[in-house]
Amino acid sequence: MSHKMTRGKKPLLPQELHPMDQWLRSERMPHIWCAGCGIGPTLYAWVRALDTVGIDKDKVVYVSGIGCCGRGSGYLDVDGFHTTHGRAIPFATGIKLVKPDLCVNVISGDGDIFSIGGNHFIHACRRNVDLLVICTNNFIYGMTGGQLAATTPIGDYSTTTPYGNIEPPFNTPYLADASGAVYVARWTSIHVRLLEKSIAEALRMKGFRYIEVLSPCPVNYGRRNRLREVDDIAKWFWQSSVIRHGADTREVQIEKGKPIILGNFVKREKLSYYGELKKLEEKVKRAAEAKK
């Protein structure tokens, strides 16, 4: 990696340096996430993809909401905005539209993006704002202690569904697809290499790109759902997953006992919101000139 050392602190000796430290506020390590959490590997995959694509670190913006994943923006040595619950996407929209040359990423959890922030998600898809949104979906509210999420599979237990969940979860790739996202993919934090490739592919595109990353939460999800060990969830992801690129997103709902469909599902060409905005400005300018 060719980036300069972490700002504002004494650099570690090279042999003491994990490659990720080039992107970390290392003085803040170890982070708050539990043993086996999927957020760490997801962020590392994202960072490797940024390197692969060759994006200048100073141009990377990381916006997050509230929850476990929300804390990520404070751990990376990039412009990090830890905003309010669910509002990361509109906050990021504001940054991106004012500074279109920045690489603006929203990395947040399923509760943040799909429950409290669900409306912002679908509208940002529809508007096709230039954002990469990565949702680490752990099927639960981790930070608050394991309550039901909009992504908890039917029948699963949480602290607020002590008799099992009766609500169908969102099929988030389908939601993104139907709302107009130009790139939709799903991976897990165990499929890190493929996730990295997918993120790199998304980083090379413009418009609203969405990647769902299934992420183990052994402490607050696994413990209550017979997936106590980190390895249990890793095995579930590994053994039940089927990679089907281009799959019909209507058919990728996650159900216990059925295969988890992974892959890069949607890739479409569409002028981004900023592109449309520039076109509009041009039109207004021409009309004004014609008037003269």
């Binding site: 905005f81 509109p90 906050f91 504001g94 539209l97 409306n119 905005l277 509009l280």
Partner: peptide, 26 residues
Amino acid sequence: PEIGGIFVQFEDELASMAAILGASWA
């Protein structure tokens, strides 16, 4: 559009307020 400003009609006031904070940071 005449003066190069950016106007967005958001989905609600929650988004509007969040977006103007982001814009200010930019």
